[in-house]
Amino acid sequence: MAHEEILSEQEAIEKDIRSRVAAFEKARGNLIPILQMIQEKQAYLPPEAINTVAAHLEIPVCEVYGVATFYNQFRFHPPGRHPVKVCMGTACHVKAGDVILENFERKLEIREGQTTPDREFSIERVACVGCCALAPVALIGDTVHGHMAPSKVEGLLLRIRIEKEKAEREKVRGER
């Protein structure tokens, strides 16, 4: 997609958010419902949206931020195309899920809750994904990777990057 296209799409989303926010009654009690609506539409809470909400409800921007950061359901970075979810449930915790998480963080050079600058990957910690027998478990997109080991992390990421390159090359070939 061309750069201008992305920008105009972004603008359209922001305009949509602004009109939806304006439809809410100006009451403090609406803060969380509004934030939930934005998160549903945009998959995260961008700084502009937080400012819009604060202006609409006439409360300080930092107060909106304070409330939003209190709840785990809100995120402040856009999810990557391949969201990495590392399980921190009891079984995975016992099987050193935190080491797996740390490996993803180091290899992608981002922290948990963040997204790589190219928006390819984001890292999240999740509670049990329901296959404790495979602990430690990580999800990349919707694919479950059981019996994770630190040495597997790089290979998984590399495979996704190679597949992406391959798809791009084929696309270019198809256009010719």
Partner: peptide, 15 residues
């Protein structure tokens, strides 16, 4: 404001 929660709670000047 207070931001985040639990052991991660901090004071934030956000915005």
């Amino acid at each position: 404001t207070f931001a985040k929660r639990g052991i991660d709670t901090v004071i934030s000047f956000y915005g």
